[in-house]
């Protein structure tokens, strides 16, 4: 049985933050995670259910100086067909193409995928390798305050983040790519989409004269949160992307992840996939 005492569908950010400030709020956006989680009893409703779907200004992709700014309520389908995303963050669009199904992409929001904080969340790995920041807003003293944080530091565990209870994730900001920027995403699966990731891999960096710098490597579904892979990055950073470097990076990747056994895959197999597919992706980067 639920204990919802209040349903609110605010129209403005100010109003939404005001409700959040009062505490004990379950936030509803697309609903694609919240509905099954509450039905199955994995998530309990708080006394206030706040539907943020009608809050103005939280939707859409814009250029904001040297950043791509994506509103938290932008749906996965909108990202998939957005020309700015296609131009500046194609790897994010690629991840969106592997996301659930058309019906869920039409409902699910980027903010929802981030806040759900699944270690296998499809957009998280590409966003991390793109140095994405999250933007959090709150209204602690009657006026709106915002703060930013790298997405790579945002997650604290499955379903858990550093978002405070009075904060709303309003947008993400992705720095515009530098010349020579490359980014790749791989999601393991036997089908194009509608699959919970067994592992996913994101690789990004600036490729110049066969050498990779500003290297970012992140993995999904191998830890309680999506993770950066510092040793793999170190094995690549500033090195010529030849067979030796690629093999060393793939080995480092396998050694530094620490996945678990579950019904989808064993830890051993996940490590093998991380190795083999990191290598395959780097081969493709080197050959491109």
């Amino acid at each position: 049985m639920t204990a919802i005492e209040r349903y609110a569908a605010p129209q403005s950010l100010d109003e939404a933050l005001g409700i959040l400030q009062q505490g004990e709020v379950t936030i509803l956006a697309g609903g694609t995670d919240l509905m099954p989680q509450t039905k199955a009893g994995r998530v309990a409703f708080k006394p206030t259910l706040m539907n943020i779907g009608r809050v103005a200004g939280l939707k859409g992709v814009t250029l904001d100086g040297q950043h791509l700014r994506i509103g938290a309520l932008t749906t996965i389908s909108e990202l998939l067909r957005d020309p700015l995303v296609a131009q500046h963050a194609p790897v994010l669009a690629e991840a969106c193409d592997h996301f659930a199904s058309d019906q869920i992409r039409n409902a699910g929001t980027l903010g929802g995928n981030i806040n759900n904080a699944s270690p296998a969340g499809d957009t998280l790995v590409p966003l991390i390798v793109l140095d994405t920041e999250v933007e959090l807003a709150s209204k602690p003293n009657g006026s709106v305050a915002t703060r930013r944080m790298p997405l790579a530091e945002f997650f604290t565990g499955p379903g858990r983040t550093k978002r405070n209870a009075n904060e709303l994730l309003t947008a993400v900001r992705i720095p515009l790519p530098k010349p020579g920027h490359v980014a790749r995403f791989y999601k393991f699966g036997t089908r194009p989409a509608l699959d919970i990731s067994t592992i996913s891999i994101g690789i990004a960096g600036v490729m110049r004269d066969g050498t990779l710098t500003n290297t970012r490597v992140a993995f999904g579904a191998v830890a309680p949160t999506p993770v950066r892979a510092p040793r793999t990055e170190a094995a690549l950073e500033g090195r010529r992307l030849d067979a030796g470097a690629i093999e060393a990076a793939a080995d480092a990747a396998r050694d530094e992840v620490n996945p678990i056994d579950d019904i989808r895959a064993s830890a051993w197999y996940r490590k093998e996939l991380i190795h083999n597919m990191t290598k395959r992706m780097l081969d493709h980067v080197a050959q491109a």
Binding site: A9, L28, G31, T32, M35, G53, S77, Q103, I104, N106
Partner: peptide, 25 residues
């Protein structure tokens, strides 16, 4: 659970799994 599509409806011109939508929404 949004896995089978049998409940697909059109909402504001886009298809959704009605089982994943809150009726209040």
């Amino acid at each position: 659970e949004g896995e089978c599509g049998a409940c697909t409806v059109r909402v504001d011109g886009e298809t959704r799994n009605s089982c994943l939508m809150f009726a209040v929404d």
